[in-house]
Design a protein around this nucleic acid. Sequence first.
DNA 1: CAAAACCATTGACAATAGACCATGGTTTTG
DNA 2: CAAAACCATGGTCTATTGTCAATGGTTTTG
Lengths: 124, 124
Amino acid sequence: MRIGELAKQSGVSKDTIRFYERFGLITSSASNTQTNRYREYSEDALFTIDLIADAQAAGLTIAEFSMILAQLNAQTDDDFDGEAFLTEKITQVQTRIEQSKRFLTTLKQTRKALRHATRKPSPL
Amino acid sequence: MRIGELAKQSGVSKDTIRFYERFGLITSSASNTQTNRYREYSEDALFTIDLIADAQAAGLTIAEFSMILAQLNAQTDDDFDGEAFLTEKITQVQTRIEQSKRFLTTLKQTRKALRHATRKPSPL
DNA sequence: CAAAACCATTGACAATAGACCATGGTTTTG
DNA sequence: CAAAACCATGGTCTATTGTCAATGGTTTTG
């Protein structure tokens, strides 16, 4: 599919897709017709875009996510310790989830307090 | 306590503390001696800084967090619907937690795959 | 075929969350 | 007391994650 279709289906903008592609997060093949330079995406791109959203929600940057992708693709020719990196990220994400849960509790308590505090006089 | 002490105890930099204070997230009283302009913080500031960390982990911006604080302080003289705002944030944080959990699973699977894939030949 | 719709590239712009630096006061300490 | 350590203010700078606009080519459509 072309970028417009992918944008529609994924819910992110075309600019965002090109941005992700510049960082190697998604890939496209050259269009079959050689006359244009349109990008052609597979269904995988859709999956990846969802994954990026999750990764960002979990607090990872684009740069970090691209390293994870490299692990997935097993481009581990170098001496980079992918397992240690993954373990570190796992710990960080777990911490972040705990913090988020704690804050969620705070939010709920705040709402409850607000409900009891701001009972506006009924307009009778 | 003064800013240096608060920075040490909270683990954030003095600049960060001043940054938070500019946005009204924490407050300080003027120092008792009138000769200087040093900020004086109470223990509350420590608590608030931890809360900010949680809020940020949960995906809130400083601006959003300051609105929550306004709710906590019941500065609800205006017609701003604090409860609706809180409910919206609660939903967003819940969504984010779900995304983070999903991504955590992905990370763990990736690590497991990596472990089995990259068994380097033992150096014998 | 001509207009509308789509796409690529480039570069400028924006918001967020600080870090950093210079300058000049204030306190603490040896 | 003098140096070291601390603090305030103001301004600049940075990274991240996009968005927007301009320009020019390609496809689709009525």
